[in-house]
Write a protein that binds this DNA or RNA. Structure first.
Lengths: 153, 153
DNA sequence: CGCTGGTCGTTCAGATTTTAAGGAAGTAGG
DNA sequence: CCTACTTCCTTAAAATCTGAACGACCAGCG
């Protein structure tokens, strides 16, 4: 139940800072990652997801759900990565409608090569400037946000 | 000068929460705004920017800079909005290379109609859950982030 | 002036994403 | 089994976005 007053000034400032800041940050990280490795931030996210998945494989729908990709976008994304040898596609064993994306060795290599630089950028732009309390607040606020987004579908 | 250690667990948690959370939030707000008003979040941002500008007009480059849009994207964006009557394009008086986008009355109406619902959504997903201290931290962190991004171009 | 080098938007081709429409399989009720 | 209904993913066409190339213009200099 949220009230419908316009945001007050502090709220507005916080809100705009978050929206603008996170957007600019995404853009910058994507640019740097592309320049350094040829991977887009989407490629990178897919690689991370698969690398952490049991047996390095996930259903299409699972990936799409986590990355908030439309099914067709995911199809395109995985196809593109498949062409470059980063992932392989396999029919899903227990559900013949579905297919799985599997991380290849080349894909894992690409991730291992990209990660340090990317994380350094994350550090440079954000993490290094956070003190412990700030990190804690960010984690709390954004985790709560995600929970709220999920619970409303 | 940032160190090159991998992120520790708390840092990683904070980082991922921010990235995922802000991305999901953007997506959700865009979806709701589209459904309610037919405006994309980009349309909305352009409208807000122009509505706050002196004389309701801005140079193309000025808009592109603030929204982190490529020049060609901005051209496309403004053209699309022009077709719908939300903005008008005018040659820039003091620099004949440039052009300005001017908010039309219809554009201002569209914004006024869209804003309350959008702000309510912002409230529902984020602002209402923030206490004062949290809002303050978010403002501080993301403002600092933007400054850092700007200073490295 | 006439040149040179830079800036401002636009345009065009190509890449990416969305939307709508299927095809193939799973699931439940009769 | 059949029939409907649903889910999973892909395809095709349309919308949007990016990057390179361009034309028009500004600014500085000889």
């Amino acid at each position: 139940m949220s009230n419908t007053l316009p945001l007050n000034e502090a709220e507005m400032r916080a809100w705009r800072a978050v929206i603008d800041g996170s957007w600019h940050l995404q853009t910058r990280l994507d640019d740097e990652l592309r320049a350094a490795t040829g991977l887009s931030i989407s490629d990178y996210h897919v690689l991370v997801l698969l690398s952490e998945a049991p047996d390095r494989r996930l259903r299409m729908g699972g990936i799409a759900g986590r990355l908030v990709f439309s099914p067709s976008r995911l199809t395109y994304q995985i196809s593109a990565m498949e062409k470059r040898g980063l992932v392989r596609r396999q029919p899903c064993p227990d559900d013949r409608r579905g297919s799985e994306a599997v991380l290849t060795d080349a894909g894992l290599d690409a991730l291992r090569q990209a990660a340090p630089g990317h994380l350094t950028a994350v550090r440079r732009y954000l993490v290094d400037d956070l003190d412990e309390a700030e990190a804690e607040v960010l984690t709390r606020v954004f985790t709560r946000l995600q929970a709220k987004l999920r619970e409303t579908q």
